[in-house]
Design a protein around this nucleic acid. Structure first.
Length: 494
RNA sequence: GGGAGCGUAGCUCAGUUGGUUAGAGCAGCUGACUCUUAAUCAGCGGGUCGUGGGUUCGAGUCCCUCCGCUCCUACCA
């Protein structure tokens, strides 16, 4: 099966530079030797009978097949050679016997190196030790690797190398690929779930003249054609609500947000969020959506409703319905029934006594929120909707009809971390302007006037939610570092 | 931003109190071997010890600078 046409002349790419190491030179010698055998070192399309996983699933002794993949291991014993081939779906063993293929083709097999891509033709059989294998009758080089792959047994361990050279991490560590497969499935299932309920996926600007929809420092960039500053979005919310005004009743967007903040185990400067809006709904609509979506995802992606926390090992059960509890009740539960009658000084003393450091400038509201953040949220292990949150923290939501000091929202908390806020969205342009002005303080230019104008044209009452996809993936895959669920996490330039 | 730790062969790791020519496994090269699967056996090669400086008769090892990574901590989801 080697190419018939003359091999390419490759002498020109032989390394002349002393930084090239001996392994690379050896592989280039093998490349040239394969060329002389008629193998094009960087071949073209190859017709496969199926992926390696399909070959395994549809295994049938004696069946003639063609397969392709990367050479991961070679166990040569004179006149017979065993090798492991791997593609994106799995691995399969090759058996190459001296008497079963032309002598030149058998000899050239030893010029292959680990990491090379090859295509093979042969028949399926089972070895004496019970391993399904391809009895190779012909093979062809598809792509020559001139650098060594990582070690076969330990894989690639060095964390920095794993992130900087993710392609090697993926080749060397099959569990990494498995984890990203789960992330991909999660996103596919979310899209299918929402599409089945009549939601339409839209795309709104990533580059915005002002960054709204959340409180976070944005990345700034310069647009030369318009001679102005642009901001990478920190949230798509204000644009999605413009679409509610425009008549999109059920919309979602699942894409990147960018926040110019620190990076650590749970924060990457770009991260993926699902935002969903449903006209004529409210936070109860969103709560029901979450209670359907999460069990659906668990079932489809994991095949079960419980996951194990990476942090503590405890079991987290996604069987609905989930607990719903008011923010103030949680605070009273932890700090005592009298908490909301304390003045700021007494609250500060009580918070300090409970081990929470409190800024002396803070008012009762801020102190309470710090107590919630530091003491209470982490204790909510099973899926929990925390409702009735003080309005200053959620300027884009409506007030509770029975208490103007509280927002009609939930924070959905799982394993002690906020996973997803859900709102009864503010559609009153007067109230919205007041809330945004209060948040902006003196810096009034930060208010998105066009958004307020849109509200003045009439936004239907609506429910909305925002689900962090990276964190959801961490939860469902039992991963502690956000970098392990992002293919190319942010690292400093080296 | 603050604190602690780490960086040795292509990969995974040893390296003693500062002391000869820096070691091992995998991978590579040469040879043997027709059912192996971390194949096995014999032999061989492979190093800017992250970078730059310093102390010392002598530095992978001790001190300083810088680069990168990890963990803790602070801000954010």
């Amino acid at each position: 099966m080697p190419d018939k046409r003359p091999p390419r002349i490759l002498a020109a790419i032989m390394p002349t530079d002393s930084t090239d190491n001996a392994y690379r030179e050896q592989r280039i010698r093998n490349l040239n030797a394969l060329s002389e055998h008629g193998h094009h070192p960087y071949g073209e399309a190859f017709t496969r009978s199926g992926t390696l996983a399909e070959l395994r699933a549809g295994f049938e002794e004696g069946r003639e097949v063609q397969a392709a993949g990367r050479l991961m291991a070679v166990r040569a014993m004179g006149k017979s050679v065993f090798a492991d081939l791997r593609d994106g779906t799995g691995r399969f063993q090759l058996y190459v016997g001296r008497k079963d293929l032309p002598e030149a083709l058998f000899d050239a097999f030893s010029l292959l190196d680990l990491g090379d891509h090859i295509g093979v033709a042969g028949t399926l059989f089972v070895t004496r030790t019970g391993e399904p294998s391809i009895h190779v009758t012909s093979w062809k080089l598809l792509s020559k690797a001139i650098l060594q792959p990582p070690e076969k047994f330990h894989g690639l361990v060095d964390t920095e190398e794993r992130y900087r050279k993710r392609y090697l991490d993926l080749v060397a560590n099959p569990d990494v690929r498995a984890r990203f497969n789960i992330r991909i499935r999660i996103m596919q299932e979310i899209r299918a779930f929402l599409a089945a309920r009549g939601f339409q996926e839209v795309e709104t600007p990533m580059m915005q003249p002002q960054a709204g929809g959340a409180a976070a420092r944005p990345f700034v960039t310069r647009y030369h054609a318009l001679d102005c500053e642009m901001y990478m979005r920190i949230a798509p919310e204000l644009y999605l609500k413009r679409l509610l005004v425009g008549g999109f009743d059920k919309v979602f967007e699942m894409n990147r947000n960018f926040r110019n903040e620190g990076l650590d185990r749970t924060h990457n400067p770009e991260f993926t969020v699902l935002e969903v809006y449903e006209a004529y709904g409210d936070r109860h609509t969103m709560k029901r959506l979450i209670e359907e979506l999460l069990p659906h995802l668990c079932r489809q992606v994991l095949g079960r409703l419980s996951v194990e926390s990476a942090e503590t090992g405890e079991s987290i059960d996604f069987t609905p319905p989930y607990r719903e509890v008011a923010y103030r009740d949680l605070v009273r539960e932890r700090m005592g029934d009298g908490w909301f009658s304390l003045d700021a000084a007494a609250a500060r003393a009580a918070a300090e006594a409970a081990g929470v450091a409190v800024d002396p400038q803070w008012d009762h509201l801020m102190i309470t929120h710090e107590v919630y953040d530091k003491l209470i949220e982490k204790t909510l292990r099973q899926p929990t909707f925390v409702t009735r949150i003080p309005r200053p923290f959620v300027p884009l939501a409506k007030a509770c009809s029975d208490d103007p000091a509280l927002a009609d929202v939930f924070e959905f908390v799982v394993a002690g971390k906020e996973l997803c806020p859900g709102y009864t969205e503010q559609n009153d342009p007067f109230e919205q302007r007041r809330a945004l002005a209060a948040q902006a303080g003196d810096n009034t230019e930060r208010i998105d006037e066009d958004f307020i104008t849109a509200l003045e044209h009439g936004m239907p009452p609506a429910g909305g939610l925002g689900l962090g996809i990276d964190r959801l993936t961490m939860l469902l895959t039992g991963t502690e570092a956000i970098r392990d669920v992002i293919l190319f996490p942010q690292l400093k330039a080296r």
